[in-house]
């Protein structure tokens, strides 16, 4: 029972992070029909920025949750700025290009950002300072869950509820959904589509950065390559839930996290990534519209 509970909790924790990153994929896909291959790298840059801020501060004797929050804020700002710039450089000039062009450009951007961090920083794993030592959970739950797991699940839940509310009720959220439905019509109705696309990238990147910081402080170390694996897995989560669907991305993240956790726990940990990739292939082949997505009929 205890082992099961650990795996379950591990799965939900992982899944929450996947969901946070998957939201970026799904929102961008909803609007541009583009797999933003560089999204995993944004997550990595978010984690790296937070690590740099947190390390500099800890070396100056500061520590605690406040440092983590500050690092997160800086990371969110930088990830959003990178996301914004990536869109302007690599995707915006290719709005009218054939479908595969922006995808190839995205792959290029992903390789570029990975190697940018590799060259400017290091290829080694860097330790993320432990800033959650003095966090104490109430006794009722402290036996069940570790502080960092609790924080990840809680934060992810709050962010996802917040995003849902923004998309549902704010003017910007409505505009986003309108652009996702029909870009040209939205443009005719006076929505500034380019601005909406930029904001989509900013929001998606910010969420990915938060995911990056949370996982970095949970796992305790990062390197330049973490974006690749996380990116593919988050994309899997997005497809699993139904790409383009916000609740789908959340559900997909959790399902993937749990699958991975139980598969590695009960079958074999050597093949951790194989499970995720196999799941991705199976979904794309047998149910490409995902759990919550609607199937789209090709326009002729």
């Amino acid at each position: 029972m205890n082992y099961f509970w650990d795996l379950f909790l591990g799965g939900i924790t992982r899944g929450s992070i996947y969901a946070l990153i998957a939201l970026g994929y799904t929102m961008v896909y909803g609007i541009l029909e583009l797999i933003n291959f560089a999204h995993g790298e944004i997550y990595m840059i978010g984690a790296f920025t937070a690590l740099i801020v947190a390390s500099v501060l800890t070396m100056h004797g500061l520590t605690g949750v406040a440092v983590l929050i500050l690092a997160t804020i800086v990371a969110v700002f930088y990830a959003a700025a990178y996301g914004f710039s990536v869109e302007k450089i690599a995707y915006k000039p290719l709005r009218q290009a054939p479908r595969l062009s922006p995808l190839i450009s995205a792959i290029g951007m992903s390789i570029f950002l990975q190697n940018y961090v590799l060259l400017a920083q290091t290829s080694d794993f860097l330790p993320f300072p432990n800033l959650l030592q003095d966090v104490l959970l109430p006794e009722a739950i402290s036996g069940w869950i570790a502080p960092s797991e609790f924080i990840i699940i809680f934060t992810a839940a709050v962010l996802m509820i917040g995003l849902t509310l923004i998309l549902k009720f704010t003017k910007m959220g409505k505009a986003m959904r309108a652009v996702a439905q029909d870009r040209e019509m939205a443009m005719l109705l006076g929505i500034n589509v380019n601005r909406i696309i930029s904001r989509t990238f900013i929001i998606g990147s910010a969420l990915a950065a938060i995911g990056g910081v949370l996982i970095a402080s949970h796992v305790g170390r990062i390197n330049f390559y973490i974006g690749f694996g996380a990116g593919i897995k988050a994309f899997t989560a997005a497809v699993l839930g139904g790409i383009g669907s916000i609740p789908g991305a959340m559900l997909g993240g959790l399902v993937l996290g749990l699958t991975e956790s139980f598969a590695t726990g009960y079958i074999s940990s050597d093949y951790e990534n194989v499970f995720a990739f196999a799941l991705l292939i199976l979904i794309l082949i047998f149910k490409p519209e995902g759990i919550l997505g609607r199937s789209s009929q090709q326009k002729v």
Partner: peptide
């Protein structure tokens, strides 16, 4: 065979996943 029905970008991701599985195995 399995990727026949898939659109361009999905095909890209599935082939990537296939290759990663082979490497991991």
């Amino acid at each position: 065979f399995p990727v026949l029905r898939l659109r361009g970008d999905y095909l890209a991701i599935v082939t990537l996943a296939f290759a990663e599985i082979i490497r991991l195995v």
